[in-house]
């Protein structure tokens, strides 16, 4: 029994650490490339400007470089592109408005089903011992 509690505690702590680190997953050593991978190329099918070699993508990369050296923040730069091209220019939807759904659904569903699953698992284990 003691062992079980320990294991559960361990899993709990582990998941908290994980949730805590979701926020800094994309922290890279290079801001430019971070931003390149967050902006889609408007004329290509499903490529970011970082991946695409189209001339408009190169122009957009230059804009990003210039804005970074101007001292603008990431949000300001992304906002600039979002205002001009619409939300679809961002490679992942922002966590605001209706787009919250895309982020919240997996989190809610996975944790909810994990709770149901572990309750079932315990009940099944208890019923047998």
């Amino acid at each position: 029994m003691f062992k079980k509690i320990k294991l559960n505690l361990f899993i709990l702590v582990f998941s908290f650490i994980l949730i805590g680190c979701i926020s800094d997953v994309d922290e890279n050593n290079n801001r430019n490339y971070d931003l390149y991978s967050k902006i889609m190329c408007p004329v290509c099918d499903g490529q970011t400007i970082g991946e695409s070699q189209a001339s408009i993508a190169n122009d957009m990369k230059n804009i990003v470089d210039v804005y970074i050296s101007d001292g603008k923040t990431d949000d300001e730069i992304l906002k600039y592109f979002e205002d001009r091209y619409g939300t679809e220019i961002l490679s992942a939807p922002p966590n605001s408005g209706t787009n919250t759904i895309v982020w919240a659904t997996p989190l809610v569903l996975i944790s909810l089903s994990f709770i149901i699953f572990s309750v079932w698992l315990k009940k099944s284990a208890k019923g047998n011992s």
């Binding site: 967050k38 889609m40 939300t87 679809e88 490679s91 992942a92 939807p93």
Partner: peptide, 11 residues
């Protein structure tokens, strides 16, 4: 909207 690599990496 576009759901691309940053989303999948994060989730």
């Amino acid at each position: 909207v576009t759901v691309g690599a940053p989303y999948y990496n994060a989730v």
